[in-house]
């Protein structure tokens, strides 16, 4: 992948809370981290510590109160329309909760076709693209007509991942991807993620409250405590 590193510099995020939104709640304070292409940065920390917020900010889905998110050397808030469109496609998020990640009213086939039409895939290629994707993530064609509620947690997660892969992302922010899964299914998904990282050269920001999972998946690890990021280098 030609893509450059994805960096966060001094990200601070505050929310206004309270009855008349007069109070400030600081979720992140001066957080900086870098995700290198093809590598995994693991983010740990207790629930509600701000990990998900950081993930959304780095993905460009939320603006920080202060600080920058840089793709290569360019700040994403300063990007032109075309550049931002490319960024938007290259940085994807896999959301927590496999049951909410897919439209419950759409079949597997419909959910996948949506993405393929977004990519303007020619009609005659749609079927083969779909087939390849299903194979890559370990789903079968028989499941095409199923609804998410008829699939297991692991299958839903595979489908969510498969749809993301169609966009050929350079980075995926994974927000608690296996927290809701059974232990043996979790092992399968973690292996799938590792295989994909190697074959597609994707950088991961792996967010989880489960330390053992984070350590298994990551090249670099950091923990969010009280809104601040403590990396392994710091704590040694």
């Amino acid at each position: 992948m030609f893509f450059l590193s994805l960096r966060a510099e001094n990200i601070t995020k505050e929310y206004r809370t309270g009855l008349f939104l007069g109070q400030q709640r600081r979720v992140l304070s001066e957080v900086s981290l870098e995700i290198r292409p093809g590598e995994t940065f693991g983010l740990m920390g207790p629930s509600g510590a701000g990990k998900s917020t950081l993930g959304r900010v780095i993905a460009g889905l939320e603006a920080p109160t202060s600080g920058k998110v840089l793709s290569g050397e360019i700040e994403i808030s300063c990007m032109g329309r075309e550049a931002y469109r490319t960024f938007r496609r290259k940085v994807q998020v896999m959301f927590q909760d496999p049951t909410g990640a897919l439209n419950p009213r759409k079949t597997v086939s419909e959910s996948v076709r949506d993405v393929l039409s977004l990519l303007r895939t020619p009609v005659h290629q749609i079927h083969s693209e779909m087939k390849n994707m299903l194979e890559t993530v370990g789903l079968s064609e028989e499941q095409l007509m199923r609804y998410p509620s008829q699939l297991s947690g692991g299958e839903n997660q595979r489908l969510a991942l498969g749809r993301i892969l169609l966009l050929k992302p350079s980075y995926i922010i994974l927000d608690e991807p296996t927290s809701a899964l059974d232990v043996s299914v979790q092992a399968q998904i973690l292996h799938l993620l590792k295989d994909l990282q190697a074959s597609e050269d994707i950088g991961y920001l792996f967010i989880s409250h489960d330390e053992s999972v984070v350590r298994y998946m990551s090249d670099n690890v950091g923990e969010i405590l009280d809104g601040r990021l403590v990396t392994e280098d710091d704590s040694s």
Binding site: S152, E155, S184, A187, Q188, L190, D210, V213, Y216
Partner: peptide, 18 residues
């Protein structure tokens, strides 16, 4: 297989689905 897929045993997956 279940015990092998635990973190302390290296997340070894059981192939296939239930």
């Amino acid at each position: 297989g279940l015990l092998m897929s635990l973190p302390e045993n290296g997340f070894v997956p059981i192939p296939g689905t239930s």
